[in-house]
């Protein structure tokens, strides 16, 4: 935790420097007759953020904030494993959207989560993984007329059938 605290503050500090540099592409001062320039607001806010990161670092050095006094690890083995399995699962889910369509990705994610993380039976997992994406399809495409990503061309036959139902 103690190392994590200063690393986080450092990363946020670097990010605020980047934001300051990026804001300075537009004028950051006062332009007579026009008021403050376009970069004024984000530039000075990023500067305040940098200053606040400095204060966090100072509190870390003096050991006054709770995370800077804690010897606990940032996450224990269980925590890292959960984060990798759940967080990683979400990343793969989003990555799959452009491959197997939004609905396909939902089905894969539900299968993965319920069967492999939740250890639910196939009898529960399979119907859920089928019904939920279908329900989403009829809600978004049918009721709200919002087209979700349909993935690569190999999904077309399935979508042709589904679109025939709603149109």
């Amino acid at each position: 935790m103690r190392t994590g605290e200063i690393v986080t503050a450092g990363l946020l500090g670097l990010f605020s420097l980047y934001l300051m540099w990026k804001s300075a592409e537009l004028p950051v001062g006062y332009i007579a007759g026009q008021g403050p320039g376009g970069g004024f607001w984000p530039f000075w806010l990023s500067a305040v953020m940098l200053l606040a990161c400095g204060m966090i670092a100072l509190n870390w050095w003096r050991g006054t904030s709770p995370p800077s006094q804690s010897d606990e690890p940032l996450l224990d083995a269980y925590g890292w494993r959960t984060l990798a399995l759940v967080g990683g699962g979400i990343v793969v889910f989003v990555g799959l959207i452009n491959v197997v369509s939004m609905y396909g990705a939902i089905a894969v994610f539900l299968l993965y989560y319920m069967r492999f993380l939740g250890r639910h039976s196939w009898a529960l997992t399979l119907p859920m993984a089928l019904i939920v994406p279908l329900a989403f399809f009829f809600f978004f495409e049918g009721a709200m007329r919002i087209t979700m990503p349909s993935g690569m061309s190999f999904t077309d036959p399935v979508f042709d059938v589904l679109y025939d139902i709603i149109y």
């Binding site: 320039g37 607001w41 806010l45 305040v48 606040a52």
Partner: peptide, 27 residues
């Protein structure tokens, strides 16, 4: 300081896109 970081981060993220007054792309 952490509250201030959180506020500033939100405000700066809100200013990404276009500057509404000059119309120039920003951040």
């Amino acid at each position: 300081p952490k509250t201030i970081v959180s506020i500033c981060l939100g405000l700066v993220l809100a200013s990404v896109g276009f500057d509404t007054i000059s119309g120039e792309p920003r951040l």
